[in-house]
Design a protein around this nucleic acid. Structure first.
Length: 314
RNA sequence: GGUGCCUUAGCUCAGGUGGUAGAGCAUCGGACUGAAAAUCCGUGUGUCCUUGGUUCGACUCCAAGAGGCACCA
């Protein structure tokens, strides 16, 4: 039931998670100021410089208050992955923890957070030509053909994958081609040792309250000029960075297939769905301690303090 | 005022010689280790508008009523 007490000498990574729109950004800043530390953003879309409004990235003022990492430093066409995030964050933490006892990581990208907390397998990057080739074969021959090939090349993974999910099947084949080995042999799922303790704080609200905030936030984004932001990035619309709630819907409006009010409704709806998928992911993680972002403000601080104080005073 | 058509799941609609009903979307649930705000999977009990009649049995047929749409006056 009780987790092992944090070791006395290790620094602490406070991981602040919760569904989109719950209010992570504000609290993360307050905590960072309180504990005199920096914020690592774990958000696969706030990484991009040109997606400020639609991703509800921290504002200029907020960025000025606390040092943030991994916000707004990629170009729309840049490739990025959870594995890259893992290694860059670990490297950064090694530096940060030379000076500080605490760091804060916050964001909604569940896989990025798991990559940092649990680690991710070492798998070589896929060369562009292989990626293109398999993608083309998917278009030409269809998923079934790729599944048949996966069965031959990696029968073990074939038995585990969701054969209806093209991304998974394609990725497995990419790895087979790139490494000459099987994907399953590389999926060792190590629980990587970290040189720091992890303290997971979950923020949540009753669903109605969350939905209400999400809907309002979308209206606010529109008032702040989301549509102009979307127009500006339109030329890059096929980039993965723009396969994103808030952008893909408005592309449909700009293309004339949806009306503006319908597109805005869809942004709200897809944001709500996203928040639910995040909650589904978090349900499996019983190391998360849950709080209400407004009602439990004091409790959050007390909880973190008690853990850190305990460590550094014993 | 007359004639015709419509009224079925939150929404748009399908359906049946009379044996209490089904699709898409929404909702909700789930999977998920290199594109993850992605990708994928699962999930449908609702006075079949109301009342009365025929019938062993009506959402289905008949009548009246209510609401909607179209056309004619």
């Amino acid at each position: 039931m009780e987790k092992a007490l944090p070791s006395k000498e290790k620094p602490t990574l406070v991981v602040l998670i919760g569904p989109t729109g719950v209010g992570k950004t504000e609290i993360s800043i307050r905590l960072a100021q309180l504990f005199h530390t920096d914020i690592i953003s774990a958000d696969s879309r706030q990484l991009y410089a040109d997606l400020k409004i639609g991703t509800a990235a921290p504002t200029e003022e907020q960025l000025a208050m606390v040092k943030h990492y991994f916000v707004g430093n990629l170009k729309l066409e840049d490739y990025y992955s959870a594995a890259q995030f893992e290694s860059e964050v670990i490297a950064l933490l090694n530096t940060l923890f030379e000076e500080k006892k605490v760091a804060i990581m916050t964001g909604g990208s569940m896989m990025y957070i798991d990559a940092v907390c649990k680690g991710i397998d070492d798998i070589p990057n896929i060369p562009d030509d292989i990626r293109t080739m398999i993608k083309q074969r998917y278009v030409d021959e269809g998923l079934e053909s790729l599944c048949a090939e996966l069965k031959l090349r990696d029968s073990e993974y074939y038995r585990q994958v969701d054969l209806k999910n093209p991304k998974r099947v394609i990725h497995a084949l990419e790895i087979c081609y790139t490494t000459g080995s099987t994907y399953s042999s590389l999926r060792t799922r190590p629980n990587k040792e970290r040189s720091f303790d992890i303290l997971k704080i979950g923020l949540t609200r009753p669903r109605e309250e969350l939905y209400e905030r999400i809907n309002q936030r979308v209206d606010t984004m529109m008032q702040q000029g989301l549509l102009d932001e979307v127009r500006r990035v339109y030329p890059y619309r096929t980039s993965n960075s723009l396969n994103t709630v808030g952008y893909k819907e408005l592309f449909n409006y700009l293309d004339g297939t949806w009306t503006l009010p319908f597109a805005v409704e869809k942004i709200k709806q897809n944001s709500r769905i996203y928040s639910r998928k995040q909650m589904t992911w978090y349900k499996k993680d019983d190391s998360i301690r849950w709080f209400h972002p407004e009602k439990d403000q004091k409790e959050v601080v007390d909880y973190i303090s008690s853990i850190i104080f305990q460590k550094n005073s014993i």
